[in-house]
Design a protein around this nucleic acid. Structure first.
Lengths: 220, 220
DNA sequence: GCGCTGTCTGTGACAAGGTCACCTTCACTC
DNA sequence: GAGTGAAGGTGACCTTGTCACAGACAGCGC
């Protein structure tokens, strides 16, 4: 019944007392596409994701989207940590289930008490926070200093499974923070160079080496 | 001799034991323009700024710069927290003194021990971290979804002192994350509308209301 | 004063990217 | 087999970033 605690590496270091408190919580199942929260929602608890993948997006005025970060098992959501510890108690971004997922939600009072009493829990939250911040700074660097072509190539390399990337052009655009039309044109350019082959809802990678070279061309 | 502890609001909540340990540290004076760290430097301690203002910039390949955040008295540097707690122990950004400043540097072992022993110190570091993260997300939003014109207007409104902003166009460009030439052209457009008057090294605000209206036009 | 020097600013030309409008293609359903 | 909605392609246009270069200005030494 509470085997999810031992199954989740980042939780196994917690003190027995903490585990006992968490053991009372029920994991919940989330289908793909489920909305975890929207901008303006109140932060009521601290989610810990046990399996699956949650993606957190920023949405601009024109509906354009930008992937801020993804939350995978053992990681935590900064937006939430921020809401529970800092001033603002509402979200400024939107979180969606990228795959079917399971998660528990630690209620705010329990979270705050664990933060005070369990150094391991603190460590968990803090390092997650630090890693996320580092990721945000890198994202900043990519978004403001790298070309779309470069970001697209990097995305295709990272997301390729068996030489294919399963994603619509709109999805790709949101992941790298550009407009769908731009993705369409860039992919077309790649295809003309013989690097990829595009199809509806997917991109087939033909020349991964060239893509990787381009991805690395403009610094990290 | 250790009056800077009581003079700095955020430090006054610390436990007496923590204060005693910090009391042994010597504040250091930093002239305007001093480099606190550069990308790649090792993180050796945790700076707490007592007076003045430190600005942290990201630098792109072409030399273009972007202000990530500013550190003012009582605030802390995320880049450093990140280095001391997370994986990476080196900086990815550059920090400069925007004004003459005083600061102490808490050595890494002292920092880690304070984090474990003093809840008030933890609270201080954590809320600073949370606020900074919130700021970073907002910055992300502005940089990727707002027009330069809008960001420039907002900058002029925020930085105006007595109806003037004392800064070169290069400095303004770095603060809002664009190129100098673009600032030149946008300021020129503002001037033609009669909103500002530009001079060497400064901008005089004539119609603050119009600027503010524009700054708020594209969402927060 | 006079010229030198480095910084600050203006500008034209061009490339890259974002926005808008509209159309085609495709998968699915009834 | 027509209808529907999502996905993808394309041209026009504007904003932004980049490059190259020139003019303006302040400070300095003479």
């Amino acid at each position: 019944m509470t085997d999810w605690i031992t199954d989740t590496p980042s939780l196994s270091a917690l003190s027995p007392a903490s585990k006992a408190r968490l053991g009372a919580l029920q994991p919940m199942a989330l289908p793909r596409g489920a909305v975890i929260y929207r901008p303006g929602d109140d932060v009521t608890g601290f989610p810990v994701i046990l399996s699956g993948r949650i993606e957190v997006f920023l949405t601009g005025a024109g509906g354009r989207e930008l992937l801020l970060y993804a939350v995978e098992p053992g990681q935590t959501c900064v937006q939430t940590t921020l809401g529970l510890l800092g001033g603002d108690a509402s979200y400024s971004a939107e979180a969606l289930c990228a795959t079917e997922s399971r998660a528990i939600v630690i209620p705010r009072p329990v979270f705050l008490s664990l933060m005070d009493s369990d150094p391991a829990f603190r460590q968990l939250v803090f390092t997650a926070f630090a890693e996320r911040m580092g990721g945000m700074i890198q994202l900043m660097e990519r978004v403001s200093f790298q070309s779309v072509e470069c970001r697209l190539a990097a995305f295709l390399c990272n997301r390729a499974e068996g030489g294919r990337v399963q994603a619509t052009q709109s999805e790709i655009a949101a992941q790298i923070g550009t407009a769908r039309e731009v993705v369409s044109r860039r992919l077309d350019a790649f295809a003309r160079r013989g690097w990829v082959h595009t199809e509806r809802g997917a991109v087939e990678i033909i020349d991964a080496a060239s893509l990787r070279r381009l991805a690395l061309a403009e610094g990290l």
